[in-house]
C-alpha cells in the first residue's frame, strides 16, 4: 500500500462522511418541500435542527474516547468536519428561531436571550461555538499553537450548555434530555478519568503512558 493509496482512502472517507452529514438537512428540506412537518412545522424544524446540533456535539466528543479505546486514528481526521457540522446545525437552529419563529423581531429575540434562561444558555453555546469555527483552519491552528488546543476545550462547556438548554425547555418529560446528559457526562467523565490517571504518580507498568496523549 502506497502513501497515495492511503491518501485516497482518507479522501473517500472524508467525502462520504461529508455527504452523510448532509443527510439530516436533505430530509429536512424534503419535508419542507412536501409539507410533511406535521401540524406545527416551525416547531418541528426547531426541534430537529436542535437535536442534530446536540448529536453532532456528542459525536465530536466521542472521537477521543473512541481513539483511546480502539487505537484507531482515522476518527481524528474527521473531527474538524464533524465539529463544523455541529456549528452548521446550530446556525440553522438559530436561523429557524429568528427568521421563521420570531420573523426577525429582534426586540423579541433580545428579550428572550436576556429573560429566558434556556435561551440565554443556548445562545451562549452558539456564541462560544463561533471562535471554534473561526479558528478551525490549518493556518489558525499553526498560529495559535498550544493555545489552540486550550481554546477548543470550550467544546466541553458548549455540550453541557446544549444539554441544559434542552433540559430547561422541556415541560415535564425529561427523559430525552437526560439521555443526552448521560452520554455527555460519560464522554467528559472518560476524559477526567484519563486526566486523573495521567496525574497520579506513575505506576511501574504505566501502559496508558504508551499512548500519545491528546487533548481533544
Amino acid at each position: 500500500m502506497g502513501r497515495v493509496d492511503k491518501l485516497m482512502t482518507l479522501r473517500t472517507l472524508k467525502i462520504s462522511v461529508f455527504v452523510l452529514c448532509l443527510v439530516p438537512l436533505s430530509i429536512l428540506l424534503w419535508d419542507i418541500y412536501t409539507a410533511n412537518l406535521g401540524a406545527n412545522p416551525v416547531e418541528a424544524l426547531l426541534h430537529r435542527t436542535g437535536s442534530w446540533t446536540l448529536r453532532f456535539l456528542v459525536i465530536v466528543l466521542a472521537v477521543t474516547p473512541i481513539k483511546r479505546v480502539s487505537g484507531w486514528t482515522w476518527p481524528l481526521r474527521l473531527r474538524r468536519m464533524l465539529g463544523l457540522f455541529a456549528f452548521f446545525y446550530a446556525c440553522l437552529h438559530f436561523l429557524v428561531y429568528t427568521l421563521l419563529d420570531l420573523q426577525l423581531d429582534w426586540s423579541h429575540v433580545g428579550a428572550d436571550i436576556v429573560k429566558r434562561p434556556y435561551i440565554t444558555v443556548g445562545f451562549t453555546a452558539l456564541v462560544l461555538l463561533l471562535p471554534l469555527a473561526v479558528t478551525s483552519t490549518n493556518k489558525m491552528m499553526r498560529r495559535l499553537g498550544r493555545r489552540w488546543k486550550k481554546l477548543h476545550r470550550l467544546v466541553y462547556l458548549i455540550a453541557v450548555l446544549g444539554v441544559v438548554h434542552f433540559y430547561w425547555l422541556v415541560k415535564a418529560d425529561v427523559r430525552e434530555p437526560l439521555i443526552y446528559a448521560g452520554i455527555v457526562s460519560a464522554l467528559l467523565g472518560f476524559r477526567l478519568l484519563h486526566y486523573l490517571r495521567g496525574r497520579a504518580p506513575a505506576p511501574r507498568l504505566a501502559t496508558n503512558k504508551s499512548l500519545p496523549t491528546d487533548g481533544g
Binding site: A39, N40, P41, A111, Y118
Partner: peptide, 22 residues
C-alpha cells in the same frame, strides 16, 4: 409570561406554512 417563555404571541396551527407569522 410563563417563567420560561413569553405568552405575548402564539402560533396558530393549521396554516401549514413555515412562513406563517405568530
Amino acid at each position: 409570561d410563563h417563567p420560561r417563555w413569553s405568552q405575548a404571541s402564539e402560533r396558530r396551527i393549521g396554516s401549514g406554512s413555515i412562513f406563517a407569522p405568530r
